[in-house]
Amino acid sequence: MPDAVQRRKNIAPWFGLLFAIGAVGCNAAFFVNPPLQGTLPWLSLLFAALALIFVVTGLWRAFGQAQVYRGKVLSVVLGVIALLPVGFTVFVFVAARRLPSSTAAPQVGQKVPDFTLPDTSGKLVSLDQLLAPVPSPNSSASSPESHAPKAVLLIFYRGYW
């Protein structure tokens, strides 16, 4: 008769919420530029999937196995709260990877196109100038290091900061 007392605690919804928060935490981790960050998108997706599994498990226990488990209200409330970060994580995963192919871009062993572009002061700078065996405009001509740079690292970025 006192089976309500004997029903087990339903902690699955809490794990659902925990993994949902972990999924969003993966996105925050990019800002510290960690090593092996290429795994972070997949880790965030894994956490989101685990969150969903625990949310569904919690709901199933509360409603499908109500004679064994408690937590009807808890599993619904935590489930709804967990869905927000899960949805955000999946949305960001898709949006961040919607990039055009790079196959037509210059590859190792190919020559890059010449260019001339303005710097932050509006002064035009060419690739030839960047690679020229003369000192850069910032260093003095008598500098012992006034030889050509061995290389330039061209970093194309999205802008709009």
Binding site: L99, P100, S102, A105, P106, Q107, V108, G109, Q110, K111, V112, D114, L127, L131, P133, A148, P149, K150, A151, V152, L153, L154, I155, F156, Y157, R158
Partner: peptide
């Protein structure tokens, strides 16, 4: 799109 190229003095990638 984000991309990085290391280019040597002969403009080779």
């Amino acid at each position: 799109r984000p991309a990085e190229f290391l280019v040597d003095s002969s403009k080779m990638v």
